[in-house]
Write a protein that binds this DNA or RNA. Structure first.
Length: 116
DNA sequence: CATCTGACGACCG
DNA sequence: GCGGTCGCCAGAT
């Protein structure tokens, strides 16, 4: 399915590291497709050894609801990641997908915030 | 075809 | 730091 690339990347997340939906989506070339990434995670086939618990919302917060939230918290802690109030120190555990070929990363920025 | 909804994210007050 | 709003994408109703 089209979610394959997502799972493939998630599987590469090292133990003790995490990724955010947004970062995940961007790494897959889906800017603004954070929810799509989340959708993919929601469809993760069980028993596939996919560390879905290493994917958190922006700011390292657990966005899913019970009973999965508790499970995720438990799994993260079992990897040495401190979870406090449904959130972790994202800056400390965030993992950046490694590519085979290094490339020049240009500072893509979103359009200027338009006055509302 | 119109709306709602969700394992999202960023901005604003 | 928190809650509300808006933007975005896709599937469900």
């Amino acid at each position: 399915m089209s979610f394959d690339p997502v799972y493939r990347l998630v599987k590469q997340i090292p133990r003790g590291r995490v990724l955010t939906y947004g970062a995940l989506a961007r790494a897959l070339g889906l800017p603004g497709g954070a929810r799509t990434a989340g959708r993919a995670m929601g469809a993760t086939p069980r028993g596939q050894a996919i560390p879905w618990h290493r994917v958190l919302g922006a700011n390292g917060k657990i966005l899913i609801r019970e009973p999965y939230a508790s499970l995720q918290k438990k799994l993260l802690e079992s990897e040495g990641i401190a979870v406090v109030e449904s959130r972790i120190n994202i800056k400390k555990y965030l993992w950046t997908p490694q590519r085979k070929k290094s490339r020049t990363i240009k500072k893509s920025r979103r359009p200027l915030p338009k006055s509302k």
